[in-house]
Design a protein around this nucleic acid. Sequence first.
DNA 1: TTTACTTGCGGCACTCAGTGCCATAGCTTG
DNA 2: CAAGCTATGGCACTGAGTGCCGCAAGTAAA
Lengths: 227, 227
Amino acid sequence: MSKLPARIRLADAAFALFDERGYEQTTVDDIAERAGLGRTTFFRNYRSKEDVIFPDHDRLLALIRDRLATSSHSTALVAVSDAVRLVLLHYVDEGDLARRRYALTSKVAALRDREIASVGRYQRLFREFIADWMGGPTESASLRAELMAAAVVAAHNHVLRRWLRGESSDPVAEVDEAMREVLALFSAPGSSPGPGGGTTVVAFRTGQDIDALLPSLRRLVEDGAEH
Amino acid sequence: MSKLPARIRLADAAFALFDERGYEQTTVDDIAERAGLGRTTFFRNYRSKEDVIFPDHDRLLALIRDRLATSSHSTALVAVSDAVRLVLLHYVDEGDLARRRYALTSKVAALRDREIASVGRYQRLFREFIADWMGGPTESASLRAELMAAAVVAAHNHVLRRWLRGESSDPVAEVDEAMREVLALFSAPGSSPGPGGGTTVVAFRTGQDIDALLPSLRRLVEDGAEH
DNA sequence: TTTACTTGCGGCACTCAGTGCCATAGCTTG
DNA sequence: CAAGCTATGGCACTGAGTGCCGCAAGTAAA
């Protein structure tokens, strides 16, 4: 008995205690004791208390990096979509574990922050890759790369969270669809009006008839007044 | 002498020491001692060591919240642009302080994470506001809100970082331009083929007279043509 | 002037995360 | 059997953050 590797036993103990008492009410000593191990062993297996919950972010980052690296200029966007799908699948494969983690990050601010910081790393990876792909060190390309990277990870997170909440039965299909929407966004012809001070017109959908809106529009144009 | 309030003296001491020895090599005791104050006083003024560097995030969040709150459905996008500009201006007003903070967050991983987590809070605010504005609890609207919020803060951060690095002489103009690009992105006709519908509302800044724009507007409403 | 109340500060003791060092038990390889 | 490697436990230490108590100075009320 107790033949499970220390890493696993520690993780099990940690999640059990987090469920019972909450994250902040659980000390590393508690975890080690419950696992029947020493405190030192805990820190040898996990860099920090938070790390028990987010074990393989580094591996995931490497996964993305690899997938992006094995692409040519013409397949860059496919690589991005693939990488996103890879990450999503990783979480889906975790199944219940991912959902327990989500429950924790939803409750504990420190963990939520940590999660967001990790997402930031993903976003950075995508940003650099996309900027590279866009080539031009133009300021405009740089901004577009930033926007696109942000949209890519936002799409991923949106679908992931839906799945975590049990709102999605086919997350892979959803993420593919979401990525299509993202790519459509950035392939839209007019989206890069370039410099030159022309007028930019922005349209959104509403339920109202346009003529009913015209007065507000006028005021909006003239002085940004309220409506 | 030493008539400056404790808060200020502590911040001065902290930044000085961070510059001299680096963030991790500076303890809270060091800071308090340099400021000629007690350790207790430090924690009374700042919740944590990191807080000395990011003092008024809460105030900034409230600022955004307020600006977004004072808007109607038709001026929602103007409010978003305004809020973004507000945040940017806050940092620009800080001047050198903001740049010293940037130097620190660039070097120290813990601070970078903290910064990213803060940005996440901004993004959440925008996401909720935009989702609310889009109305429909549709899954499609929800995704679009998420994408748009991500793009909005990405645009802001892009311009802010440019300014922090000294690459921008007129950040306000740049952020306005970037926001135009973001809004244009999401107004692109093809991107939301969604179920049919209503008419289109238009928000924009322009130098032109609105009447000169009306024909384009009508076309935009009818078939989503550009500019 | 004396009393009472508030505000800002210092000191101290405590918890807990995280680091570093040393010792030891077990297992493998010569 | 000896040498070496690996996984573990114990222990002491630093440093962040909390809580409590006490003190001084200023202010208001008696």
